[in-house]
Simulated assay, not measured.
Amino acid sequence: MNSKQYILVVEDDKPIRNFITTSLKTQGFNYIETDKGTEAIALSMSHKPDLIILDLGLPDMDGIDVVTKVREWSKVPIIIVSARENERQKIEALDKGADDYLTKPFGIGELLARVRVSLRHSASTNNEKEISGIFKVKDLVVDFNKRKLTIGNDDIHLTPIEYKIMALLCSYSGKVLTHNFIIKEIWALPTGSETQSLRVFMASLRRKIEKNPAEPQYIYTEVGVGYRLVDE
């Protein structure tokens, strides 16, 4: 692990913060920590961390506002860790610029796996095995060389994980991808985990590309199995 990689931990619950920072230290990461949103914004500007782990329920400001402020000038990966289970709030955090979302309580192995995934996404997309060229179906166009998705004349912004899910669906367009397959490919986690997170990301992705998410024309849900991207 690169000892120069710094992670900013923003968590007001001291036992949880200590749990996270101790685990990061054992994995070779350096870290800085705070329990306040205003200080988190200042630290992100002065220390330029490689990744931010952010709780939403902070004493001085909402974590979503921290995401909004940081996104005004930085693309640093942000992983939300929060006890909020409302799907709409999770989607709002992703819409504002968070890259991933983990619901408390969580296992440290799961958090560290997400940290590694986010850092890989951030390090260099050129080193990842991705499809190239252009994928087109109806009004949806994905230019993999430019990492750009458009619907008609509208550019659609995707988070790194949303883009990776979209690329995976495009690679197997017309085929049903099971929940476990997608989870393993995106997060490299064991099967049977992260179904809830996958559902949140799919809901966010649909909100961005579907005119009516309740009546999708691009990504279909195969109930109890997984998802399928149309191929015509």
Rank of each mutant, 00 (worst) to 15 (best):
T103I: 15
E194I: 05
I20L: 06
K208T: 05
I16K: 01
F135T: 04
R199E: 13
L140N: 10
G97D: 05
S197I: 11
L51R: 08
K138F: 06
L229W: 07
V10D: 08
E185W: 02
R88Y: 13
K4N: 12
G152I: 07
E210M: 02
E11D: 06
K211R: 13
V66Y: 02
K90F: 02
Q27W: 08
E232H: 13
S74D: 07
E185K: 12
Q196G: 15
S171M: 09
A113T: 15
M166C: 05
R199G: 13
V141F: 07
M202V: 13
I209T: 02
V70L: 09
I16P: 01
Y220F: 15
E72V: 07
S173Y: 09
G97K: 07
I79Q: 08
S46H: 09
S171P: 04
K164D: 10
P190F: 02
I41W: 03
K175D: 11
V81I: 15
I80S: 01
E85P: 00
A113G: 15
T103S: 13
R114S: 08
S44F: 01
S122C: 11
Q89K: 12
P15D: 04
E162V: 03
E11L: 03
N180M: 02
K175H: 11
I64M: 09
T125D: 14
L56A: 02
V142R: 05
D155N: 13
V137Y: 05
G37H: 04
R116C: 03
F106W: 06
R84H: 13
E110W: 08
V142M: 14
E33V: 03
R114I: 02
F135E: 00
I108D: 04
G107W: 06
E11A: 00
P49N: 04
P59C: 01
Y163W: 15
T26Y: 10
L189E: 10
Y6N: 15
S171Y: 06
M61F: 08
R147C: 07
P49S: 07
E162W: 02
K69A: 14
I209M: 02
R84Q: 14
T103L: 04
T195A: 14
S197E: 10
I151A: 06
R199D: 12
G192P: 09
G152M: 04
T178G: 07
L24C: 00
N18W: 10
R88M: 11
K90R: 10
G226K: 03
E130A: 10
